[in-house]
């Protein structure tokens, strides 16, 4: 029925890909925050034309499933790069294109929609009176942003960023569709050897559960720490 030795064998096999998954998710989170920050700035300063384009893009990113976006990137990106490489007389072989890059690009763009919402909320939490006070004290706009707004906004945004880190780790399970090996993909590969699907999926669930529980505890500690300092 349920063989525990296979479960533990799969469990230790899956543990080997955990660092890779965590690193990939961290990279996606950072890129997502950067793109999301740019989107927020476009949204806040209402830059003409770019503002409307960003609104449509955000609506598309929120309205379509991640898996569909991933497939679009997987099939579209090599062709797009090939097109631009052709323009620039630059050699590019689509067959050697690493799908990890597809995953990183499409996930960063998809999650930037969520990050921009978080960043917007964080900036909103700093009252406008503080910005006026900084201006009246002779701070430049950059100084105001760097010394007054961002230190306060980060405390608001951080728990949400950490939350999306967990979401990204979970969403990476879809990356198997484009042959990138994360936790769930490793479980599938393990079960392909002996057809014990239930054991390997249970092992994957255990790994995810442990990982999320540990990260949640660490994040909560960290959040309490910075809230105390602020």
């Amino acid at each position: 029925m349920f063989e525990s030795n296979i479960f533990f064998q799969d469990f230790s096999g899956i543990l080997t890909v955990v660092p890779y998954t965590l690193g990939l998710a961290l990279l996606i989170l950072i890129l997502g925050i950067l793109i999301g920050g740019i989107l927020t700035l476009i949204d806040q300063y209402k830059i003409p034309f770019l503002f409307q384009v960003a609104a449509v893009c955000l609506s598309f990113l929120r309205g379509t499933p991640l898996l569909v976006q991933l497939y679009l990137a997987y099939y579209g990106m090599p062709k797009l790069i090939l097109f631009f490489a052709g323009l620039l007389n630059f050699k590019f072989d689509p067959n050697q294109f690493d799908p990890v890059i597809t995953v990183i690009v499409s996930y960063s763009i998809c999650f930037s929609a969520f990050q921009s919402e978080i960043i917007r909320g964080a900036f909103m939490s700093v009252s406008y009176g503080q910005i006026e006070a900084a201006h009246s004290l002779g701070f430049s706009s950059v100084q105001t942003l760097r010394r007054i707004v961002i230190p306060q906004a980060i405390i608001e945004a951080l728990p949400n960023f950490l939350n999306s880190y967990l979401t990204i780790i979970k969403s990476l399970s879809l990356a198997f569709m484009v042959s990138v090996v994360d936790i769930l993909a490793k479980a599938k590969l393990e079960s392909a050897l002996n057809f014990r699907y239930l054991e390997s999926f249970a092992a994957a669930a255990a790994v995810y559960w442990l990982l999320c529980a540990m990260l949640t505890v660490v994040f909560r500690r960290y959040e309490q720490n910075i809230r105390k300092k602020a």
Binding site: K170, Y208, W209, L211
Partner: peptide
Amino acid sequence: ISFTRSTPILLQMLLVYYGLPV
């Protein structure tokens, strides 16, 4: 709730698909 929140929905679906009959 803790289990549902910490595992991907794809994994939950596979667990139900292979586990529920058992």
